[in-house]
Design a protein around this nucleic acid. Structure first.
Lengths: 233, 233
DNA sequence: CAGTGGTCTAGACCACGGT
DNA sequence: CCGTGGTCTAGACCACTGT
């Protein structure tokens, strides 16, 4: 007789996925409600809920109270990018990580930087430029603006010995961030730091991190030519 | 008297988050088990479970059976990238989307392409190069390899009228993909298509999409200079 | 072995939002 | 109004794994 283990939420998710892919539940169409599926699959409604919620988070279903659940027309794919802490990323690859402070300069921030950070123009900031090395070779050139109003301790930090990236991650609790990825041509400073030709195509990642209301830092990290950021979806 | 509504899973998550940020639960330390927290917060264990599972998925907690739950040392931040369907992305910005087929050529795939797609060297593929326009201006130059063995219908597709991107999304059920982001210097073909200077720094996104076992397509999309891909975390 | 998280259940109440 | 998903509960069994 059926000594099957129970129909778990992953089974429910897989079966729903199968029906979506098989066009058994066509794009844009309503699917049966949770109670009916629970009855059909011989499990509790909570189990169906967990499964369908998972698919909804993955972007395959749209769920609305009273409106029911329907298959999304064009499944928008989402990929999860892990934002690397450079040092960890390098070490994880089995390479040795090096760090060199290039420049540290307190002073008023440029208007554009202050605006992006939600600060009054001319607010006093700390600019830090540094280079990360991987097995001795230039890996990432980092141009950072720090907001001392949000993190006073950075003014006393020995940035020649500790990289801001690692220190912030372990000592400042930020709540959210904005991220932008792009490509830029290496200017003199970048080319000099990364030891590449001026004008080289460089992958750049810009981040602004915030506490509840204050910007902590705006940083742009320029990766040595050829770098590729990889993930799956 | 306490007419408070019940202590829901989001309340539990917020309180746990507060304790983590306040170093009330220090990095690396074990936190109380679910049963204890449920008792303390006056809710069911399932509610605590939902809250802590959420924080674990966010990368703030590590949970192991019997091992308990501990605060992650260096909260690895994750950002979710939405992989754009170019046409939709353009239209969503309120711009008009244009599409032009540049080249369509069946033939054996280069060794490197076949290798990346997990195919035997020299497998017959279909190469399609196309340009997406935003309000008439070059936006994305797309260089694509399609595997007819996985999607025979592409051979009969009128790629001059339909862009492969949109068609695939709506007609092929893929299961997973690999993604790589980087910067490249525009070669002649790219510069010509995007109407930029050769050597310009161009943001490139490469994707390989798979069904259960077969590669469907390998595509590299080159964005016009200045493009930034944005998200939050 | 024993403690912890992972999951399922049956039932209940509620919030939202089409009709 | 009333159907649907969102969530909570109390209890139970199980899977994994540290000790």
């Amino acid at each position: 007789m059926p000594s099957e283990t129970s129909f778990g939420w992953q089974d429910a998710r897989d079966e729903a996925l199968r029906r979506i892919r098989a066009r058994d539940w066509p794009p844009g169409e309503l699917i049966p409600n949770e109670a009916d599926l629970a009855a059909e699959w011989g499990c509790a409604r909570a189990t169906v809920n967990r499964a369908l919620r998972d698919l909804a988070e993955a972007g395959l279903l749209e769920r609305r109270r009273k409106g029911g659940t329907r298959v999304v027309l064009t499944p928008l794919r989402k990929a999860t990018l892990e934002i690397p802490v450079i040092r960890q990323e390098v070490v994880a690859r089995g390479a040795t990580h090096g760090y060199a402070l290039i420049d540290r300069a307190p002073g008023p921030g440029p208007a554009e930087v202050c605006r992006r950070m939600g600060l009054a123009a001319g607010t006093g900031l700390l600019r830090v430029r540094a280079l990360h090395l991987s097995d001795g070779a230039p890996h990432v050139y980092e141009d950072r603006w720090l907001n001392p109003a949000a993190v006073p301790a950075v003014l006393d930090l020995d940035l020649a010995r500790v990289d801001a990236n690692s220190w912030l991650v372990q000592n400042v609790a930020f709540t959210r961030g904005d991220l932008a990825l792009g490509a830029v041509a290496a200017d003199a400073a970048i080319a000099d730091a990364l030891r590449c030709a001026p004008g080289s195509a460089v992958f750049a990642m810009e981040r602004i991190t915030w506490t509840a209301d204050q910007a902590i830092t705006l940083v742009t990290q320029h990766y040595a030519p050829g770098y590729r950021m990889k993930t799956s979806f």
